[in-house]
Design a binder for these strands. Structure first.
Lengths: 67, 67
DNA sequence: GCACTATGCAATAAATATTTTGCATATTAA
DNA sequence: TTAATATGCAAAATATTTATTGCATAGTGC
């Protein structure tokens, strides 16, 4: 479950469908990534991060300072 | 051409083959990623970054402060 | 109740990452 | 010269992401 991604999306008031449209993906793909069900490509990760105003690390890196 | 990745690997004195072994990938995959020829999965990016002691952003993010 | 949006889940198809194998060149060391 | 390492390139096979489609449920507002 990628909480950081879900939180960043909700903070921007975007639905899964809207984020999918903005990143040339589908709703299913976004949903599965948020659920941690798979393993997106780097390009898609970058698109998502830029769309949400975050970096790769902020959305997809398991940092040492995670609680 | 992913220079940041190549530089980080060479700084660690690793061959493409050695990095591939450490990340459960193949030499070809590492070579193609360094050449910018494709689009690795997030999991592989994370493995590579951890192996090289870097973060995703340091290897795969096109930062605003790139010269 | 009824329409509408948001999300989850699942099967199939399509696209593409990754592996496997082999051969090529350049470099370095014995 | 010969052996060994490092890298590039390419074709075919495999694995996995991603798209497509459809149906289900919960919530909201009319």
């Amino acid at each position: 479950m990628n909480m950081k991604l879900k939180l960043a999306r909700v903070e921007k008031n975007l639905s899964q469908q809207q984020l999918a449209d903005l990143t040339d993906a589908t709703r299913q793909t976004i949903g599965l990534i948020e659920k941690g069900k798979y393993n997106p490509s780097l390009n898609l990760c970058v698109k998502i991060a830029k769309t949400l105003g975050k970096t790769l690390d902020q959305l997809f890196w398991v940092g040492v300072d995670d609680s």
